[in-house]
């Protein structure tokens, strides 16, 4: 709408990241460079994903059949598994200890995504004369994504640990896969139920928080058992 509105959106989108960075103690570790590295790995992962998508899934010219579309979408979502590999790379590549490592990975990854996908959108859209709720919604969605990325980082980290309880391994694996296919499932559900953008956002937030809490529980168990604080 105006520069002021743009300011509002930027505050909404970036301040939570800043607060997370600050209050998780990353600032004290001097983890900015690590976050930056995580961001670089994010960029490379996205490039790799794009190459694969462009090679194997050229944009179809017309709307195909419903079933076929779902299959394509499913395969496209499968490419998102590369995100997990990227996250693994982040976790293994970044030296660090304990909680800070996971938060660094999450914030770096999410921050890079934020800059690349939201920055221009907000600059072009929210600064224009036209008002639309979608910019505020996008900003809130980014906040949800922060929780999701930290959760993913924690899950990937747990998955790599050999001292993870055997009974928890299936749950962790399930959650990782669920995280990957969540956007696809959400999209399908939203299209079928035809609910408004705000309820969709609320559903997304709810699902992400539930995933986050489950992950936190398991993470606590693991962290306690190996004596990490």
């Amino acid at each position: 709408m105006t520069l002021y509105h743009f300011g509002n959106c930027v505050a909404l989108v970036y301040v939570p990241y800043y607060l997370t960075y600050k209050f998780s103690g990353l600032g004290e570790y001097g983890a900015f460079w690590k976050c930056f590295q995580a961001g670089l790995i994010y960029v490379f992962t996205q490039l790799a994903k794009m190459l694969i998508l462009a090679t194997f899934f050229p944009t179809s010219d017309g709307p195909g059949l419903g079933g076929f579309d779902y299959l394509t979408e499913f395969l496209k979502a499968t490419v998102d598994l590369l995100d997990l590999a990227g996250m693994y790379l982040v976790l293994s590549g970044i030296p660090g200890k304990g909680h800070a490592k996971i938060v660094t990975a999450g914030v770096g990854w999410g921050g890079a995504e934020l800059l690349l996908t939201r920055g221009l959108l907000l600059w072009v859209g929210a600064r224009g004369a036209e008002f639309h709720w979608k910019y505020i919604q996008k900003c809130l969605e980014s906040n949800i994504n922060l929780v999701q990325h930290v959760t993913t980082a924690a899950l990937v980290w747990m998955w790599t640990r050999h001292d993870l309880k055997k009974s928890l391994v299936p749950i962790v694996t399930f959650l990782l896969i669920a995280m990957t296919y969540k956007p696809l499932v959400m999209e399908g559900v939203l299209e079928v139920m035809a609910i408004s953008a705000w309820s969709a956002l609320a559903t997304k937030a709810l699902v992400t928080v539930v995933f986050g809490i489950i992950t936190l529980q398991m993470y606590v168990v693991l962290a306690e058992s190996i004596g990490m604080f």
Binding site: L40, V43, L116, G119, L120, L121, G125, G128, E130
Partner: peptide, 20 residues
């Protein structure tokens, strides 16, 4: 990155004309 970043920005889903 000098090439990659602008590329990303161009590719990222932005639709500035849908507004007015």
């Amino acid at each position: 990155l000098l090439f990659a970043l602008p590329l990303m920005i161009i590719i990222s889903p932005v639709n500035p004309v849908a507004a007015a």
